[in-house]
Computed example of a mutant assay.
Amino acid sequence: MEVPLSPRLDARSKLLDAAARLFYAHGISATGIDAVIAEAGVAKMSLYNNFESKSGLVAAYLQARHEEWLELYRARLGASSDPVGGVLAIVDAYLDHAEAGYEHGFRGCGLLNAAAELPAGDPGRSIVAGHKAQVEDLLREHLESLTDSRQAAALAEQISFLLEGAISRAGLEGHSELLHRAKSLITSMVRAL
């Protein structure tokens, strides 16, 4: 038997879902709280009962995006059987993100897009930086099973740069072709170890 969500949790998830759609499609700065409230179909007070401000909503959105990516990665990792597969699970999570059916098309990494809008020192930028550091750490951990720790760290950084560049360009072009090309390059780099 399914337990119904409390009205507060239901409003919170509606607000986060609406913010995710609107922030990704139009940007954080261009999306006002009234638009999020209208999209969510909740009362204005629901926003302030769940988030202290728009900044709090943005931080929750960024954390949710991070968790969403981790879920994509974990699902891919579950299908891999070796360290090369672990590295490619990370790449495939990027591809899954790029190939999701976005209502207004693929615009690149939602976390990087958000960070570009946030001023230096904004707590949201720390969430994005933490996500990117975790991706590089995951790459390094998989690569350490294939080579020494120094080479694994250097290669993880190179792959991270390649992925970030590919997803940025893919977002600019609106499709995942460059990520597929990056995957091919990364596969060759890792299999050469």
Rank of each mutant, 00 (worst) to 15 (best):
A25Y: 05
A98P: 03
K44Y: 08
A59F: 00
Q63H: 08
H66M: 06
P83D: 06
Y48F: 15
A93T: 00
G85C: 09
G56V: 02
R76S: 05
L72Q: 05
R65S: 06
A59Q: 13
P83I: 07
A98E: 04
Q63E: 15
Y24T: 05
A93P: 00
A98Q: 05
L22R: 13
G27C: 05
Q63R: 13
Y94F: 15
Y73N: 02
L77P: 06
M45W: 01
A89Y: 11
V91K: 11
S29E: 15
G105M: 07
I90M: 14
A64G: 08
R76P: 03
A25E: 15
E103K: 12
L22E: 06
V91T: 14
L57E: 03
L70I: 08
R76A: 12
A20Q: 08
D92G: 10
Y24V: 03
F23N: 03
G78D: 11
E71S: 12
G32I: 12
A38R: 15
L88K: 07
A89N: 11
K44P: 09
L95I: 15
D34P: 00
W69G: 01
E68W: 15
V91G: 05
R21F: 01
G101L: 04
A75S: 13
V84W: 03
A75R: 15
E71L: 12
G78K: 12
V58M: 10
V84T: 14
G85T: 01
A79P: 00
A30Y: 06
Y48L: 10
A40T: 03
A43F: 07
N49D: 13
L62T: 02
G85S: 08
L88R: 09
S53L: 04
G56Y: 03
Y94H: 13
R74I: 00
D96V: 01
W69M: 12
E39T: 02
H26K: 14
Y48C: 02
G56S: 07
A38K: 15
M45A: 14
Y73H: 12
L22D: 02
T31L: 11
E68G: 01
A35V: 01
D34W: 11
G32R: 14
D96C: 07
G85V: 01
W69A: 10
A20M: 01
E67S: 14
A40M: 06
D96G: 14
E67G: 04
S55I: 00
L22T: 00
H26R: 15
G27W: 07
I90H: 09
Y94R: 12
R74V: 00
A43S: 13
F23R: 06
A20E: 10
A19Y: 06
S81G: 10
Q63D: 10
R65C: 04
G78F: 01
D82V: 06
A98K: 05
L47Y: 03
A30M: 07
L95A: 06
Y24S: 06
Q63L: 11
A93Q: 04
Y94N: 10
R76V: 00
R65F: 05
G105E: 08
R65L: 14
S53V: 05
D96Q: 10
Y94C: 08
G32E: 11
G56Q: 04
E71Y: 02
K54T: 02
